[in-house]
Write a protein that binds this DNA or RNA. Structure first.
Ligand SMILES: [Mn+2]
Ligand SMILES: [Mn+2]
Ligand SMILES: [Zn+2]
Ligand SMILES: [Zn+2]
Lengths: 151, 151
DNA sequence: CTGCATCCTGCAAATCATTTGCATCTGGGA
DNA sequence: TCCCAGATGCAAATGATTTGCAGGATGCAG
């Protein structure tokens, strides 16, 4: 650790992102380019509303929702659920399944990326015991960040 | 394991539940009694709508929401988030913090209770590395149940 | 380079889950 | 039994996300 987060496509060029879009037989539109740029530049998962604001209202919120949905189906972004009723999205690197976790401050919503995953053994055990196939998991941590502890 | 799930208050009498309510300086009303009964009888976490339906519309949906909110604050039920946009609640045994996890079938929404949890040492490591305090976690598993695998 | 079918977008209205205002009702202590 | 803080019903308000529709832009064909 200490290096760049492995799950952040180190500033993939927008050209490359457009190429990935085309490979999915999807059109490269202005809103989509901007949404990808916002996700690429933003640290941590972003909500549709945050993305929309980052775009300074250059496109409709509905378009943001539709685009994120499409990008998710295309495997270009991954959806996270941090407990409040809001979806968050992160850009995925090429070929990256984006599996990782977060540590969220209950008071200020600060997000820390957690690149380690501790559950493969547990997941395996749960799968064999239950007979379920293709078992995955969603794991998020919550606590109080240093700043909020003093405040 | 193999025994009853530790987190299910083995059919606590409604009288005992009413007593717990009174200890919180809350009134024991008909809707609340019925909601507690529904949660006690239902296996697995129930959504407000499911609780409402189990009550055969003997009280308003808003009352179910308000009651569940109150019961959560009173530490009598615990809220879970299984990934769809719907809250689920489980009845808690006296003194039980209810920390546990679930395995959900992506196709039929069948829920399996998971009493297993990974070692607290890992959570501890995350806490010390980040400087966060009071770190907890939310963990749910997803997969395809045996029945849905064949179908 | 231009035309065109197709896919996208903006806008507004519709859904869904959850919350809230308010008038009315009721549980349970006095 | 009386009283009133607290609870409920009902309906309207919120907030997030989706959808119908008519007009607009993209990218392949010509
Ligand atoms: Mn992340
Ligand atoms: Mn459970
Ligand atoms: Zn904080
Ligand atoms: Zn299933």
């Amino acid at each position: 650790m200490g290096d760049a987060h492995h799950h952040k496509p180190q500033l993939a060029g927008l050209g490359e992102l457009a190429a990935r879009l085309r490979n999915c037989a999807r059109r490269v539109t202005e809103p989509r380019r901007e949404i990808l740029r916002a996700l690429r530049d933003g640290a941590h998962p972003m909500s549709p509303k945050q993305v929309h604001q980052a775009l300074h209202d250059t496109c409709d919120l509905a378009t943001v929702y539709r685009s994120l949905h499409m990008l998710e189906a295309a495997g270009m972004v991954k959806r996270f659920d941090l407990g409040d009723g809001v979806r968050r999205f992160e850009l995925l690197g090429e070929g990256d399944d984006g599996h990782h976790h977060h540590l969220v401050c209950k008071r200020c919503d600060t997000v820390v990326e957690i690149d380690d995953c501790f559950t493969p053994a547990l997941e395996q055990r749960i799968a064999s015991r239950s007979g379920f196939a293709g078992v995955t998991h969603r794991l998020e941590f919550f606590g109080t960040c240093p700043a909020c502890q003093t405040a």
